[in-house]
Structure formats: C-alpha cells, structure tokens
C-alpha cells in the first residue's frame, strides 16, 4: 500500500479508537489510556521535524475537540514529536536507520522499541498530566498517574502492533 494512504488510514483509525473507545474507559487510580502517539512514532524516519510538528498539532487538536480538553492533547503530542528525533538519534543502531523501512516493533526488535517508545511515551504522559493538574504540591499524584498510565498504554501499543502490522520478512 502507498505510504501516504497507509498513514492517513492510521491517523483516522487511531483517532477514532482514542476518542470513541479509550476516552470512555475508566480504570481508576487516575489511569488514562492514550495510544495516539503511536501514529507520530510510526511515521518515516527521514520525515522533517517541521512536518512532524504540524502533524502532531493537527492530530492533537482533533482529539482535543472531541474530548473537551482544549489543547491539552495537542500540547503533549507536540512535545512527543519534538523529542522524537533526539531520542531516535540516541538509540540509533550501529549502521544507522534504513530510510525505506518502517520503525516498528517487528523491524527493529523488542530492545530498541522498549527503549525508544518507552522514553517518548513517558515524556508525553508526564507532560500531559503535569499540565492537566498544574499544581506542584500534587507532584506525587502526577507521578502516580504517569507511571501507571504509561505501563498500560505501552502494553496496548504493543498489542496493536501485533494485531495490525505485518511481520517483516527476514532477509
């Protein structure tokens, strides 16, 4: 399938899943499931950062409009997109990234995915809950929400990739 079409479909699907399903689920302990950062993460490696930021902003603002959060998702997804190239550079394999390959769980392996996506997801969730609560004397509560939500969101993202992404053919 064409790269652009694939990404547009992914945009719509992740947005709908987040707004129509995940926003309605309440687990308690302040846990909130967020999987839409996966869209920004799976974009091609060589994509320019300006384009990344623009896409992040638009996806965030659409989700905001449908969950009455007025810019909260947009802000934290922008942070996710801004830090993506930096983290990618830190965790790059020895001979660099293959520009033709998609950087998902199957192509890059568990170790790389847990390090890279985990770090970015922690930044995203921490930013989100910090802004949402916006009180320094409740920092413990922010950390509790971040810690618990990151674990569950991460597992859900793993599951989504297992279900919907084709396994790469090993050369």
């Amino acid at each position: 399938m064409n790269q652009a079409v694939k990404n547009i479909l992914r945009f719509v699907a992740l947005m709908a899943f987040q707004v129509l399903v995940l926003n309605q689920i309440e687990i308690g302990f302040g846990i909130q499931l967020m999987v839409y950062p996966l869209f920004i993460f799976l974009l091609p490696v060589e994509m320019g950062i300006l384009m990344l930021l623009l896409l992040a902003f638009s996806l965030g603002i659409v989700i905001d409009a449908m969950s009455n959060t007025y810019g909260l998702h947009a802000s934290s997804l922008l942070a996710f997109a801004y830090f993506r190239p930096l983290i990618f550079k830190l965790t790059a394999p020895r001979d660099g990234y293959d520009p033709l390959m998609e950087t998902n769980l199957h192509t890059m392996g568990y170790n790389w995915f847990i390090k890279t996506f985990g770090a970015l997801l922690i930044i995203h969730h921490f930013w989100f809950f910090l802004l949402e609560i916006f009180k320094l004397n409740e920092l413990i509560f922010v950390l509790q929400k971040t810690g618990l939500s990151v674990i569950l969101s991460f597992l859900l993202c793993l599951l989504l990739q297992y279900l919907f992404l084709n396994k790469a053919v090993k050369k």
Partner: peptide, 13 residues
C-alpha cells in the same frame, strides 16, 4: 516552530 504551536495549544487550554 515548536514554541509557536505549543503557544497556540497552551493558550487555548
């Protein structure tokens, strides 16, 4: 650019 978009989002929020 990051600061600009971030500014829009935060002022909305």
């Amino acid at each position: 650019f990051f600061a600009l978009l971030q500014g829009i989002a935060l002022s909305l929020y």
